[in-house]
Design a protein around this nucleic acid. Structure first.
Lengths: 154, 154
DNA sequence: TGAAATTAGTTTCACCTGCAACTAATGTTT
DNA sequence: AAACATTAGTTGCAGGTGAAACTAATTTCA
């Protein structure tokens, strides 16, 4: 039988790479404010403008609508976000940060940016660009494959 | 408030990169044989030698012992692995693939290797090396951070 | 207008995951 | 040998996650 050395298998390497990176950042928002990944990401998006509908959040967060719905619920429960109903279209939610939520985000952003810098420590700017570019390229390949192999639309 | 553009945030980019890569491979073993990631990884390790104890599997798979325990249970239920008790040390499990499991793995390995090649399509060998090297470097940074920030051992 | 289709978002279900607590076997110490 | 500590592996519990079904509001179109 053909052998497969797990440690040399590219997707495996990507996975353990991701785990380390993800943990190092989750550490911050989870430990300090007890936020989940989804909640953190939705908060970050919410901070970039005044208000968003849930579907705009879906578009900007790479999260599914299920997850966005739950993240909003969680942020609301924590007092970090408000969720109102759009008067124009009563199906639509209008989500925005509360003052407390803005406060928390303002605390968090410098911390995660510092963490990001630590992650990239020792990489020249051109190496960082290279890394991003190569990840992009592989991601495109992967996305093409996923679409292709989905002959039966789901 | 300082702004954080999610799409330019490195850990976010890593996450969506990982998701695409992971999905493209999971597609194979999940769709064809209904295996979870953990089960797939344990199978791959099991294929590299005759038998393993559960803790050897932990060491070689980057999975926690909980997950390994459950992956073994799942593989056993699927008929792909056997789980016996070590006569020397009756706490110890002796895990190995069944004939059917070897058969499945033999089917899977060429498929996932082909998928790996598709993922890396368009990258020169030296670019592949570069990508791996940069991921390594970042991972080291991340692991150092995680250890450092764990003043209270968990 | 009113039936049918579409869209926004929520909930249910089934599964994966990790931590902590647990059981059982072995090793250590006196 | 008895008590204590350690080790191997499992299980309970408390989340997180995605697909599919669902509710409610809006749009389309006959």
């Amino acid at each position: 039988m053909q052998d497969l050395e797990l440690t040399e298998f590219f997707p495996y390497q990507v996975r353990i790479f991701y785990r380390s990176v993800s943990d190092s950042v989750a550490n911050i928002y989870a430990a300090k404010f007890n936020l989940s990944v989804s909640e953190w990401r939705i908060m970050a998006v919410l901070g970039s403008s005044d208000m968003f509908s849930a579907s705009e959040l879906v578009a900007r967060s790479s999260l599914g609508k299920v997850n966005v719905s739950r993240a909003i619920k969680g942020l609301k429960a924590a007092g970090y976000a408000r969720r109102d109903i759009d008067f124009e279209d009563k199906r639509r939610a209008v989500v925005r940060l509360t003052a407390e939520g803005r406060q928390v985000l303002a605390t968090l952003i410098p911390l995660v940016k510092a963490r990001e810098a630590e992650l990239l420590e020792g990489l020249e700017p051109h190496e960082q660009q290279l890394l991003l570019g190569l990840m992009q390229k592989v991601k495109h390949n992967a996305d093409r494959i996923i679409v292709d192999s989905r002959d039966t639309p789901r």
